[in-house]
């Protein structure tokens, strides 16, 4: 429970950080909030020779709407998401998730960028990004690029980021009028990782017909899962259409490939997904209608 020796550098710019990662190769690792990385170091499951702390880089902690997107700097703390009135009102799925990630201590340090870059299928924000058409902006030695959430989570603890790339911004489109979202998580005890979690983001027209549906699943696969067939099944359907909702919930469960573990059997987790997708669609549509 004590890490081996490592070097620590706190660069002042993203470019400096990227250069260090490039020069030191696989032996260097980005440190953000440290809430996933430090435990790995203490258990000696990771032993990088160099930690590049991006916490001292100014200007990575903005949280604002501009140019049609909600933009979250990579170093925004999860607790800040939870405190934001803007998120509570217009981005309820992100707001919901930010209140159920770990516990207040972890949320005070853990960052948006870290939660997503860690590539942990049990982390809560990845599913929200999959449901919300999220995009990740990264800077690497080859320059800047934007990666869609769908293309970002490639495997367990593995993302599309190159070794010398730093995630600088996480963003989602500003929702259309009559949009709503929700994140529902079932865990054992407050602060635990999910037994299963479901993110829903949708938009409806005046007749309550779904014009846009995003569904993401937490902790039921090697990565966070985008339940595409379930999304399609709801498109053009009334949010109150029970048959359509049940169909979407079943399709989402089909997309889940959970394993049995201390949180429950695979079968149980699939059933949870069905329950939570149905509930999530309901809550998101209520919010789209202006409730809460």
């Amino acid at each position: 429970m004590n890490p081996p020796e490592f070097e620590y550098v706190a660069p002042k710019t993203v470019q400096e950080a990227v250069d260090l990662l490039k020069v030191r190769g696989e032996w260097a690792k980005v440190l953000a909030g440290g809430q996933s990385l430090i435990p790995l170091l203490k258990l000696r499951l990771a032993s990088p020779a160099l930690l590049v702390d991006i916490g001292k880089v100014p200007g990575l902690d903005y949280l604002a709407e501009s140019d049609g997107h909600l933009r979250m700097g990579a170093m925004v703390r999860v607790a800040d998401l939870n405190r934001s009135a803007l998120l509570k009102k217009k981005y309820p799925a992100i707001h919901d998730a930010s209140g159920v990630i770990a516990d207040p201590l972890v949320r005070n340090l853990g960052t948006v960028g870290g939660n997503i870059s860690h590539g942990d299928p049990a982390n809560d924000l990845p599913a929200v990004m999959l449901a919300s058409e999220g995009e990740m902006a990264a800077t690497g030695s080859g320059g800047n690029r934007v990666i869609k959430a769908e293309d970002f989570f490639t495997d367990t603890f593995t993302t599309a980021l190159a070794h010398d790339e730093i995630l600088t911004e996480v963003r989602v489109p500003v929702p259309l009028p009559r949009s709503g979202g929700a994140y529902l998580k079932v865990e054992q005890k407050v602060g635990d990782f999910a037994s299963a979690g479901v993110a829903v983001q949708l938009s409806v027209d005046r007749a309550s017909m779904c014009t846009k549906v995003g569904i993401g699943l937490t902790a039921v696969g090697p990565t966070a899962v985008k339940a595409k067939k379930a999304e399609e099944a709801m498109l053009g359907k009334q949010v109150t259409d029970r048959v359509a909702v049940a169909e979407a919930a079943a399709l989402a469960a089909d997309a889940a490939t959970p394993t049995s573990d201390i949180r429950g059997t695979a079968e149980y987790k699939k059933r949870l997904v069905r329950l939570l997708v149905a509930r999530g669609l309901k809550r998101a549509s209520e919010r789209a209608g202006g409730k809460e």
Partner: peptide, 10 residues
């Protein structure tokens, strides 16, 4: 946990 649900899970 599975056995603590009061509602019938689908």
């Amino acid at each position: 946990q599975e056995k603590l649900w009061a509602v019938e899970l689908p």
